[in-house]
Nucleic acid binder design. Sequence first.
DNA 1: GTCTATAAAAGGATAGAC
DNA 2: GTCTATCCTTTTATAGAC
Lengths: 208, 208
Amino acid sequence: MAGRGPYAKGLARRAEILSAALDVVAENGYSRSYVNDIAERVGLTHTGLMHYFASREELYEEVIRARDVSDRTAYTTGARGVEGYFAVIEHNRHVPGLVQLYAEFSADAAHPGHPSHAFFVERYAYLREALARDVELAQADGAMGATADPTEVAELLIATADGLQVQWLHDHRIDMAGRLRALWRALCLASHVRDAAREDARKGAGDD
Amino acid sequence: MAGRGPYAKGLARRAEILSAALDVVAENGYSRSYVNDIAERVGLTHTGLMHYFASREELYEEVIRARDVSDRTAYTTGARGVEGYFAVIEHNRHVPGLVQLYAEFSADAAHPGHPSHAFFVERYAYLREALARDVELAQADGAMGATADPTEVAELLIATADGLQVQWLHDHRIDMAGRLRALWRALCLASHVRDAAREDARKGAGDD
DNA sequence: GTCTATAAAAGGATAGAC
DNA sequence: GTCTATCCTTTTATAGAC
């Protein structure tokens, strides 16, 4: 039975802290979210909280990591393909703290030498490959044309999703998922046109 | 004759400070760029620098503002349309400090209550409208189909450019402008397909 | 216009008790 | 597992002299 002893209690506490961190970020932004404020919110002192995380950056890394795991199980299971990714982006509108954290933290960590730089580099690589495979699935069932490069499409989707989230932070009227799906449809359409053009060229060459 | 008196000297100093700020951001990232370091770099003390700018945020706002002005005169003059925007993004690869600053600062300022929040909101609005007009020009000369919504295309271009810049910060091998132009071509292609579809529908309706 | 000095605040991290 | 106390370091900002 899970829930026995201090181990389970520690895990629950960690989860509580991660959730509180998102609340604080939603209220103050990442750069003005202080460990102290988070600790207060869960009824701990600064030091008490530091028992669970070695540093501020590690704490926020954990927030992203935990979200990635839960998003993955909730939205990308089964054969949903790219739609799973769109669903995550759509859901993010209910988690402003996460969007704010991600935007600031990932930009901050873009700098080499940042303690979380490697984490984000790996995360991008993972996400890119996962999405590229989803694009391949879409190509297999004909939604996306064969001429499209899966990795390029994946990078474009990620870039656009990231940018849309920053725009959404500035103006919540923006429909992030809607825009992203529109991009996807346009890319599908364009790839089919290119497939047809290539087919024509092949036939033309065959006539020689 | 420009260059007379303390006025011109002050302007030169300001420009020097803005340039030094970009260097420091390139080296340390925005969140770890301190007024003191910038002052040192231009041979001033912290206090000496604060004579020119009221606060840290104002200084960085000025950096972006100054860049916007120079980019505008250098790349978007004449009838270059969206290509002017792509050229700016392409050039940004030579200004890593600017890209880093923009990514971090704009994400930071996404939070309402940030001293530069209004600045970025207005900047987005301006950029969106300027690009939407460029899209309309492209529609006028046939590059972009009539079915495309200029504002939607503009928002998509901005979002993608922003996201690509963050990705580029993490991995300089990414060809920001190349990817953005590929997106543009796909959007053009897709809009033409939709134009044709709409035309077909119109003719079909006419047959009734 | 620039400096010295200093405020003022804080924000992250650690040692050691309970 | 959590707290008290404290440290260390930084960063921004201001007052006032030169």
